[in-house]
Simulated scan of single mutants.
Amino acid sequence: MPIEVDGKTLETDEEGYLVNLNDWVPGVAEVMAKEDDLELTQDHWDIINFLREYYEEYQIAPAVRVLTKAVGKRLGKEKGNSKYLYGLFPYGPGKQACRYAGLPKPTGCV
């Protein structure tokens, strides 16, 4: 189902992930969050930007356990835990945050 971002129609797969990762712009996250009735804060953007950097470096979207550990190292212990991440992304920090970041679905996510 395509999404409309900044006047452009972007293709997504059946789970809502961007088909073409190069189509991502920050507006993608805004549109997807709005569909989920979620308002993005700086804390959300910290995780979204972290995921994009992680993907750029490793060419893979991290599973939740890896994400939690990596966020803890980079952003601090108080942010590197499941409770914090699920508070930001209630549909699952791996799946939902990666979708907002324009990344493929993390391996190991159902």
Rank of each mutant, 00 (worst) to 15 (best):
L85M: 13
K79H: 08
T68V: 09
E53V: 10
V31Y: 10
W45N: 08
V28W: 09
A61G: 12
Y55K: 06
R65S: 14
E35Q: 15
E35I: 11
R65T: 14
D46H: 05
K77F: 12
E53G: 08
Y58R: 09
Y84E: 06
R99W: 11
K83P: 00
L40P: 13
L75M: 14
I60H: 12
M32T: 12
Y86H: 10
P62A: 03
V66W: 00
W45T: 13
Y100E: 06
P90T: 03
I47G: 02
L75W: 07
I48A: 12
K69I: 06
F50Q: 02
A33T: 09
Y86V: 06
E35D: 13
K73E: 09
L38M: 13
E57G: 00
A97P: 04
R74I: 10
A97F: 07
K34Q: 15
S82E: 09
K34F: 12
A61S: 15
G87H: 02
E53K: 14
G94Y: 07
A61M: 08
Y58V: 00
D36A: 15
G76Y: 02
E56Y: 14
Y54F: 15
W45V: 11
Y91D: 06
L75T: 05
A70G: 02
G76I: 04
G94N: 04
L67S: 05
F50N: 04
Q96I: 05
G92D: 09
T68K: 11
P62E: 02
S82Q: 07
Y91K: 14
D36N: 15
D36V: 04
K95G: 12
V71D: 01
I47R: 00
A97N: 03
G94C: 06
W45Q: 09
G94L: 03
Q59C: 03
Y91L: 12
I47T: 04
N49T: 15
